[in-house]
């Protein structure tokens, strides 16, 4: 089974040279720590920076330079700042190659719910609806089940949707899955996790074809 860093590490293997990537808050943020050697990617943060770098050293924080999680950050050589409308032109116009974000629920059709629990948690969608409606390649990073043990990979989402038919892949603590027309296609198992474990934790239609390899990490 993977922890949050393990999920981030597996997703990082999906990065390709030359990708512009938008990372959501939570597990997706950790992906930046595991960029494969020999490739160049640039991170976009929708509040208005392209070429986001690591956190600043203590004493070098700049209140005017933050990411979408409101954290103090630095910038890489070649970085740029821009306004919010320009930022979402990058996203809506599909100039950003890959979006990685967290979710509360994903359906077998690729619907995603991650912004609201009616009557309980109402924080807002931020940029998530724009991102999922526009991005060509969306990977969801999340735990396979919720705290109560219920599956988060469902036939239909029960929570208010963020977007429809948009998620391409899901990486959880148990597995890497691809969304296909017939449902969740199991591509890889997390270390020490069996196909049955994954089947038991998946409510939506799970497609298992042939031997499912275990994830490999360098």
């Amino acid at each position: 089974m993977l922890d949050k860093n393990g999920i981030a590490k597996r997703i990082a293997k999906e990065l390709q040279d030359g990708y512009f990537v938008n990372l959501g808050i939570g597990i997706p943020t950790l992906v930046a720590n595991y960029i494969p050697e020999g490739i160049e990617v640039e991170f976009q943060s929708e509040n208005g920076v392209l070429g986001m770098g690591p956190f600043p050293f203590q004493g070098e924080e700049d209140p005017d330079i933050i990411n979408a999680g409101k954290q103090t950050i630095t910038t890489m050589p070649g970085a740029s700042f821009f306004d919010s409308a320009t930022s979402f032109n990058m996203i809506r116009g599909q100039h950003v190659d890959l979006t990685i974000l967290g979710a509360m629920e994903v359906s077998e059709d690729g619907d995603i719910a991650n912004w609201k629990i009616p009557g309980k948690m109402v924080k807002g969608m931020g940029g998530a609806m724009d991102l999922v409606a526009s991005a060509e390649n969306i990977i969801v990073a999340m735990m396979h089940t919720n705290k109560a043990g219920a599956s988060k990979l469902l036939k239909n989402c029960s929570l208010p949707l963020t977007g429809v038919n948009c998620v391409k892949k899901v990486v959880t603590n148990l597995a890497l899955l691809e969304i296909t027309e017939k449902g969740f296609k199991l591509l890889e198992r997390a270390p020490g996790v069996s196909v049955d474990d994954i089947r038991n934790a998946t409510e939506g239609n799970l497609i298992v074809e042939g031997d499912i390899p275990e994830m490999k990490f360098d």
Partner: peptide, 10 residues
């Protein structure tokens, strides 16, 4: 100019 999430690295 209050900082909401002060994140630093060692």
């Amino acid at each position: 100019k209050r900082i909401e999430q002060r994140t630093v690295r060692k």
